[in-house]
Design a binder for these strands. Sequence first.
DNA 1: TTGCATCACTCACACGTGTGAGTGACACGT
DNA 2: ACGTGTCACTCACACGTGTGAGTGATGCAA
Lengths: 352, 352
Amino acid sequence: MTVNGRRATAADVAAAAGVSRSTVSYILNGSDRQSFSPETVARVRAAAAELAYLPHAAARALRKGQSGIVLLVLPDVPGSTNFAKLVAALTDAVRATGRSLVTLTVRPGNRLVDALRDISPQALLEVLPLPEEDSAAALAANVPVVVVTSSIESLDRAAGALQVEHLAALGHRRLGILTVSDAQVHPFSATRLTAATAAVEKLGLAPPRVASVTGPPDARAIGAVATTLRDWTTGEDPVTAVCCFNDLFAAVTVAAARSAGLDVPGDLSIVGMDDEPLAGLLGPTLTTVRYDFTGTGAHIRERLRHALDDGPAAAPISSDAVRVVERESTAPVGGEDAAGPAGRDVSPPRTS
Amino acid sequence: MTVNGRRATAADVAAAAGVSRSTVSYILNGSDRQSFSPETVARVRAAAAELAYLPHAAARALRKGQSGIVLLVLPDVPGSTNFAKLVAALTDAVRATGRSLVTLTVRPGNRLVDALRDISPQALLEVLPLPEEDSAAALAANVPVVVVTSSIESLDRAAGALQVEHLAALGHRRLGILTVSDAQVHPFSATRLTAATAAVEKLGLAPPRVASVTGPPDARAIGAVATTLRDWTTGEDPVTAVCCFNDLFAAVTVAAARSAGLDVPGDLSIVGMDDEPLAGLLGPTLTTVRYDFTGTGAHIRERLRHALDDGPAAAPISSDAVRVVERESTAPVGGEDAAGPAGRDVSPPRTS
DNA sequence: TTGCATCACTCACACGTGTGAGTGACACGT
DNA sequence: ACGTGTCACTCACACGTGTGAGTGATGCAA
């Protein structure tokens, strides 16, 4: 409610209830060091409700010395399922500590240091390394930075390994690994790549072929990948399966395979990552790796409590929150049927 | 820089420069009502830089009565390209008014009214209707709400019409329109649907068949759409082309057509919407409608200036920021070749 | 000298909270 | 009557800014 044009303050509530402003503050914040008669409490509560009183966040932050705002700094990446799922999990995690998570999209012309003049967060969550200038500003403003990337790392490691293990279980012995050179996602791509190569070694497979794609997943990329695939699949000891950085580039690889005259999964199995919604609707439907961020959310919650509320140090995160979604784009090595296994999650029903 | 454990304040800068705190404030804010000697200005600037002084956002907000924060309230929707592009455009638009945009993800257990205890935005941007409780809270907190949906509406209208016009230009006279019943996206789906039906009428086509899909784009949806397609394409005056709510459901429709024994685009042309990154990588690649939100950003900027800075009322938005991306899933009616036109944006190269 | 304007700067208040310290009234035990 | 303790509540400060009003010094015209 607004009282003569301005939003209601604690003083308005106090006046309406016939008590002092301190009384209002004590009652609404429920201090255990003060006591008030039940009828006063009721009167204050009623007045607050009547006026729809909401304490002014800036004033509260100034007085308490902490804002209750956790700022998630995101680069300006195109919408990805995993980021959306991650944001949802982090939102819940921050809420569970009694704070609020808001997201800042950092892009050219909108730097973190600009935003810090308008918002004073209690902590920063960063999922990708901040520009030097920005982390310096965070340091100067005395805002602790919690690096989410390190909490996801174990998931990425597990995911990279899962791709390889899945293909190895299907009998593939010679794999190709397709990574990307985009600097923005380098933390993820590097982790997945090293995990995949480590898994190859651990399983005793042949040394993998590795290639890196530059630029967006478009026609040019398809051409480039097609060239790579022709190279990989000719000669002796050809590659029979490819691990891709994500579902987008897996789709690129499918298209490239087609243009190179390779059947998927007959000649080449392809496994993606992230389980984008469209992955189950491609032809062939895409085998991929799906992330579950609920464990990550819990882990970040503990790390926040440690950093902000003097809680105990967070335990290492478990990495079993990642699993293969088996669809049509992978098949046992040497399998002559072009159909592949029926998709486990999504498959066109054959009902008449 | 932190001075004895706390972040530097204007008082620290003043002490370092040997002036009063007011002088620091006046110099750093560049008031034209006060004048200072050049050497004092230099000394203050140097001290501020030395201490990496950043004014406390909450204190500034409290004093000025406005926070400079614009809060974009987003529902918990899975990552979509259009939302990501929209957020980027809005970020720039808000920055152009000298404020900062942050995004709040509203989901069960994380209501706007909770967040408003931690953050006091100067304005709200809503892209989907807020729950009653939340808009009441915004009203009570005296925070103006700028409805983005209404600025996008003209784009949605143009997009819905474009789907129909594109198919009509290919000679299709009897269309199906596939919308969704998800309440969350109802503002968009409703606008696109009415625009499409209006375009059908305007072009003098046969009355369209309309169906609504419930639930996510999964196997169940494919089955349901397949049934619908069989109905639409049998009997006299069959449907030869379908407009879909977005690319996800267009992909569902492609899969459904395949399971119904229909060739795309030979028997049925399908046009999607949003130009998701994967749309150009499906088989067949998807003809779709692509949004450009730069005009929307400029419009929202003007509306913010009107609402917050006493600027003039914003002019109506132009709606030419939407265009068809022609790929393989649409073809002239009755065309017997299953290949369709070569994708204009993305097509697998046929080089050997 | 006096009056007045300009310059360079400082004083002091207000924004809306949260909270430690204080205060008057009352009850109770001695 | 008097000290002591509890109850119900209020006073007053501090958080860090932005800014209108004020102030002493200097210059300059009369």
